[in-house]
Amino acid sequence: RIRTTFTSAQLKELERVFAETHYPDIYTREELALKIDLTEARVQVWFQNRRAKFRK
């Protein structure tokens, strides 16, 4: 699998949801994935990585 490059619009939306909750449920992730045209798996991994970055 190649590395996913996020558009600024996708990042803006991901960060907006992250500001609300660091642990979005499956429904939130799936809805977000559809909205920004990514797979739910990519959204899930983005949140994992974002939480790791947040803890640092």
Rank of each mutant, 00 (worst) to 15 (best):
E40K: 04
T7H: 03
V43I: 12
F47A: 04
K35F: 07
R29N: 04
K12H: 10
R1M: 07
V43F: 00
I2F: 15
L11M: 07
R29H: 00
Y27A: 15
E13Y: 01
T28Y: 04
R29T: 08
N49Y: 09
D37N: 15
R42Y: 11
E31G: 07
L14H: 02
W46V: 01
T28G: 04
T28F: 05
S8D: 14
A33E: 05
T39N: 08
R55M: 13
E13S: 04
A41G: 09
Y23T: 05
V43E: 00
Q44E: 11
K12Q: 12
T5E: 14
A52F: 09
F47T: 02
L32E: 06
R50M: 08
Q44K: 13
E31I: 12
A33S: 06
T39M: 04
S8A: 13
I2W: 08
T28S: 07
Q48N: 12
V45D: 14
R50S: 03
L38I: 13
L11K: 07
L14G: 04
E40F: 03
D25A: 06
E15I: 00
R3S: 15
T7K: 06
L11F: 00
L14V: 05
P24Y: 01
F18T: 02
L32F: 01
W46E: 00
I26A: 15
Y23C: 07
Q44V: 07
F47S: 04
V45C: 11
K56R: 09
T5N: 13
D25C: 04
E13M: 04
E31N: 02
E30C: 13
L32Y: 04
R55G: 13
I36G: 02
E31L: 09
I2A: 13
T28A: 13
A19D: 12
L38G: 08
W46A: 02
E20A: 07
Y27M: 14
F54N: 14
E31D: 13
P24C: 02
I26W: 10
T7S: 11
Y23H: 08
K35H: 01
F18V: 00
L11T: 12
L38M: 11
I2C: 08
K53V: 13
Y27H: 15
K56W: 09
E15K: 04
A19V: 07
A41I: 07
D25W: 00
R3Q: 10
I26N: 06
T5A: 10
E40W: 04
E30N: 10
K35Y: 01
E31S: 13
T21R: 05
L38S: 15
W46K: 00
R29Y: 06
I36T: 14
L34G: 13
V45Y: 08
E15Y: 03
R29A: 03
A33D: 05
Y23I: 01
K53N: 12
T39P: 11
T21H: 06
R29Q: 04
R50I: 03
F6C: 08
Y27T: 15
T39D: 13
E13A: 08
A19R: 09
K12T: 13
Y23L: 01
F54K: 07
R42L: 14
E40G: 05
I26M: 08
D25N: 08
T39W: 02
V17Q: 05
Y27N: 15
E31R: 13
W46M: 02
F6I: 12
V43G: 02
R50Q: 15
K53T: 12
F6T: 07
K53R: 13
R55A: 15
D37Y: 00
E40S: 06
A9E: 14
L38N: 09
K12V: 11
L34V: 11
F54M: 14
E13Q: 06
Q48M: 12
R51K: 05
I36P: 04
E30S: 14
L34T: 15
F6M: 13
I36R: 03
Q10F: 02
A52I: 11
K35L: 06
T5C: 11
A52Q: 09
K35I: 02
